[in-house]
Design a protein around this nucleic acid. Sequence first.
DNA 1: GACAATCTGACACCAGGCTGACTCGAAATC
DNA 2: GATTTCGAGTCAGCCTGGTGTCAGATTGTC
Lengths: 218, 218
Amino acid sequence: MRVLLIEDEPYLGQAVQEHVARGGHAVDWVQRLDEADAALRTVDYGVILLDLHLPDGRGLDLLRTLRRRGDKRPVIILTARDQIRDRIEGLNAGADDYLVKPFDLDELVARILAVARRYGGNPNPVVRVGEVEIDLADRHVRRDGRDVELTGREWAIVDQLARHPKATISKEQLEETLYAFGAEIESNAVEVYISRLRKKLGRDFIRTIRGLGYRLGG
Amino acid sequence: MRVLLIEDEPYLGQAVQEHVARGGHAVDWVQRLDEADAALRTVDYGVILLDLHLPDGRGLDLLRTLRRRGDKRPVIILTARDQIRDRIEGLNAGADDYLVKPFDLDELVARILAVARRYGGNPNPVVRVGEVEIDLADRHVRRDGRDVELTGREWAIVDQLARHPKATISKEQLEETLYAFGAEIESNAVEVYISRLRKKLGRDFIRTIRGLGYRLGG
DNA sequence: GACAATCTGACACCAGGCTGACTCGAAATC
DNA sequence: GATTTCGAGTCAGCCTGGTGTCAGATTGTC
């Protein structure tokens, strides 16, 4: 999953970026609202972390604009102000969750997962592909009833494929999920992960659509 | 689908043209803004790729003119400048997506498809011919309910036929879709693809109107 | 029947995809 | 602090499948 962090304090921004990235998610960190707007238009984020007071405008306005456009991607508000009034205003503007600084980084990661899960809105969080069962909420994969251990990157790929069960996901989309803006990749890493997943979960678990990408199942 | 590429760097231009053509689209490549303008007035492009700094004027001006005219065809900006500020300016001028050089050619193809899909807005994206169902938005073909895999070229032909369900499309028109201006073809490639499609989708899926061309259905 | 248009099986080429083996670094363990 | 373990990313060589070409067969038209 890819996360957009909108936060102008350098120290906190870096800490959040590093911590969330360690959980296997790509984090794009921008410091201004117009940068955020540009990023939101071009990248498919799973969760947006929004600081409320930024140098070039109010974070709440961005949130309202987003919702007016019909954009429903989940937003978690980060703010130093500990006012009930802000909390209400934030949630009314369409935020999905709320964290007051200073917050615990592990708690932030937990909230991100919770909110993303809710947004995924999959009424059936277990996806079945042949003899493989993917439990999106629990981060579990079973093959023939037996648990299969996946690494962080492997799961990131299974997760994205399982969230769009009938769509073809391009190699670039998978790369975008795995890596943030800066960290470019110059190899066939995605192919390698696909190969590893097939070894663990069966040859037909992931199908190649040559020139276009990958999709689940046969 | 036909793509207009406005790009003055010869090396990059050729690389893009070849690569996108391989994805099953015809690419017309022009190097100046006045040529671009002429092409845009006479040809029905699905996507426009626009370099921002050209020898005879600013690419952004072309984009703004286009939008002022009410032309909504999707535009993807290509630029060497890597500033979020430029990205914002481009999107504000009416661009649909934005790529910073050097970019991955596969990623470009993915963005072209994404943008074209968003723009397509076809009120009836599913065309039915006998027992065959063509999902124009999803790039899916089903026969008797079962998915049929098509290659890039095969799909390009089905796509064009399905977009004009009652028209007869000449062999030359199909060639134009498959191959760009320069890249002439010297064989019966179109006939070969028609043959392959009939094998996959049924003898009556495409009808031959001798001396004129092809059309869908019986 | 003669001629042209179209069809289709076969083939060679090559870009795209696959995968085993390797290095590197971070974390865990002793 | 030293050693081991393990995941991530890179690379090279192999394999596969899409593409364009051709030749001979078939079909349609006069």
